[in-house]
């Protein structure tokens, strides 16, 4: 399993992956720089303003979309010149190949989230924010956003195995991601829409006693439930795919 993941990373790291990884912090950084502290009506909110300014576009659109691009990238070279054939004729099970690709994707999304954190921090330094960095709250946001991508990455991995091109999985991704813009405004539908979860879990709100910014029930049923469904469907499809 470890060897399989190493191999995946070996193939992936030569695929301009750093370009994709750096796009996230780049956006967060630019977004953070646009923050205007003159609107701050209370002292000590500078960090939150930075977080809120970057969060919307980043969590709502960027994170779901880029996780799809990553999934397509990790499958691209397999589709190109018979990579699947070569890989699956080795003594590996398809389930393990699927899992190792999935785990690697989630690891990269985590790296993107950490770089996002670093981007926020550096914006604060540049802007001369003197308040202490609200680490626990921002950790919550960064890790929560990561957990919320668990189902989305599973779905995109499935679609990327299914389709050879980047465009087709991206289209599906867009079709599901754009409505999240509306869904987050709805108290009735927002909590049940998987693509709205990255935003909900990165947005600072809710009961401070919960582990993340959404209630446990929502986390388990919506994020957990859609993860199980998407992962299983992708896994089953991959088991049956004729190479």
């Amino acid at each position: 399993m470890l060897a399989l993941m190493q191999t995946e990373w070996f193939k992936l790291r030569k695929s301009k992956i750093s370009f994709i990884i750096l796009a996230g912090p780049f956006i967060a950084f630019l977004g953070g720089l646009t923050v205007d502290f003159t609107e701050a009506d209370a002292p000590g909110v500078e960090w939150y303003l930075i977080l809120l300014a970057t969060n919307l576009a980043y969590a709502l659109l960027f994170l779901p979309l880029i996780s799809g691009v990553l999934a397509s990238t990790i499958c691209r070279y397999e589709h190109q010149e018979g990579g699947w054939k070569q890989l699956l004729a080795l003594p590996v099970t398809r389930g393990k190949v699927f899992l190792s690709k999935y785990l690697l994707l989630m690891a990269i999304v985590l790296v993107i989230q950490l770089l996002y954190l670093a981007a926020l921090y550096s914006v604060g330094l540049i802007k001369g924010v003197t308040e202490p960095f609200p680490l626990t709250i921002i950790w919550k946001s960064v890790l929560g956003g990561w957990v919320a991508t668990l189902p989305l990455v599973a779905l995109q991995l499935w679609l990327s195995i299914l389709f050879k091109s980047y465009a087709a999985p991206l289209t599906v991704n867009v079709v599901f991601t754009l409505p999240a813009v509306l869904a987050i405004n709805s108290e009735r539908f927002g909590p049940y829409y998987p693509w709205a979860q990255p935003f909900s879990m990165m947005y600072i709100s809710g009961d401070p006693n919960d582990l993340f910014f959404v209630p446990w029930e929502q986390l388990l049923t919506v994020v957990g439930g859609s993860f199980v469904i998407f992962y299983l469907m992708g896994w089953v499809y991959f088991q049956r795919k004729a190479i």
């Binding site: 695929s15 301009k16 992956i17 370009f19 994709i20 796009a23 780049f26 956006i27 977004g31 646009t34 576009a57 980043y58 709502l60 659109l61 960027f62 979309l65 880029i66 691009v69 397509s72 990238t73 691209r76 091109s165 980047y166 991206l170």
Partner: peptide
């Protein structure tokens, strides 16, 4: 050669389009 690049640039562009007001 690698479509990941135009797509990533495109996704960044989408974020720009979304943040048009700033």
């Amino acid at each position: 050669q690698n479509q990941a690049i135009p797509i990533t640039i495109g996704v960044v562009g989408v974020i720009f389009a979304y943040s048009a007001s700033v």
